[in-house]
Amino acid sequence: MLSRVANSIYWMSRYLERAENVARFIEVNVNLTLDLGEGPGEQWGPLVAITGDWDAFTKRYAQPTRDRVQRFLIFDLDNPNSIASCLRNARENARTTRESLPAEFWEELNKFYHIIRGTDPDSVSEQPHELLELIKNSRQLLLGIIDSSMSRGEAWHFAQMGQLLERADKTSRILDVKYFILLPSVSDIGSPLDLIQWSALLKSASAFQMYHRSRGRITPKQVVDFLVLDRHFPRSMRFCLNHAEASLSAITGVPVGSGQTPAEKQLSNLGSQFDFTYVDDIIEEGLHEFIDRFQTRLNLVDDAIFETFFAIRPLVGTAAAADHG
C-alpha cells in the first residue's frame, strides 16, 4: 500500500485509541470522586501529569480544578492530546485515506467528530458521565466496524499496530495515576482507601471483572502483574506488544523475531524484555521508573516504524490550482 496511506492509517488509529483512553483517564478520577466523596480530597492534577502535558496546562489554566482539567482534556483544541484534538486529527487522517477504509467507518467517525464539536463544555462539567460513555461507545462502534468489515490486509495491520502501541502506552499511564495520586499518609498503604484507588484503576482499564476472574482479590502486586504482564487481557501492555509484533510480522511477511528492519528489531527487543520480567522486578525497580523507561522505549519503536515504512518525503503545498467546479 502507499506509504502515505499507511502512515495516515497508523496515526488515525493511534489518535482514536488516545481519545478513548483520555476518556478512561477522566473516568478513573470521576469514579474516585464518587467513591471518596467530593471536596478538597479531589485530585485533578495527577490526571494532567500522566498525559505528559503538565506544562502546557499550567501555562494557561493555573490551578487544576475539575472543570479546567476536564475542559483541557476533552475540548481544548490547543491541547494536541485532548479528545477533540485527537478526533480532529483522526478524522483528517481518515479523510485522506477514505478509499482504504470501510465507508461506514468514515461515516461513524464523522458523526463522532460532529457530536464532540457540537457539545457545550459547560453542559458536561458536573456530569461528564454521559459524554464519556458516548465517547467510549462511539469508539467501540468504530472498532466493531473495523473488526467486522475490513479485510485483514496491510491497512488493517497498520491500524492494529497503531492502536496496540498507543494502548500499551496508555495502559502504562493509567497505572502511573497511582504514583501521582497521593495517599494521605504512608500508613494508608493497603488501607480501604488504597484498595479503592486500585479498583478505580482497574475499572478505567475495563479490567475490573477480568482481573477478578483470573486473580481474585485486589492486591497492588497482582494489579500491576495483570495490567503489565498478563498474556490474555487485551489491554495489558504485554498483550499489546505481542499483538503489535504479530501485525508487524504480517506486514513484512517475516516470522516474529527474525525480521531485520529497524521496526522489527526495536519491537522484538521490547517485547522479549517482557518475557524476562517478573512483577517483583518491576516493584523493585519502582513502578513509576519502570513505566518511564517503557514509554521511552516505545517512542523508539515508533521512530523505527516511521523509518521503516513511511520514510521522509518533501511535503506538498496546498493545491487550489486544479480541477474545475
Binding site: 477514505r98 478509499e99 506538498v316 496546498t318 486544479a322
Partner: peptide, 19 residues
C-alpha cells in the same frame, strides 16, 4: 486516481471515486 490533495474543492469526489 491522482488528486491535488485535501485542500482541493473536489477532494471528496476524488476520494469517493477511488473508494
Amino acid at each position: 486516481v491522482l488528486t491535488p490533495g485535501i485542500y482541493n474543492s473536489a477532494y471528496f469526489e476524488h476520494s469517493f471515486l477511488a473508494q
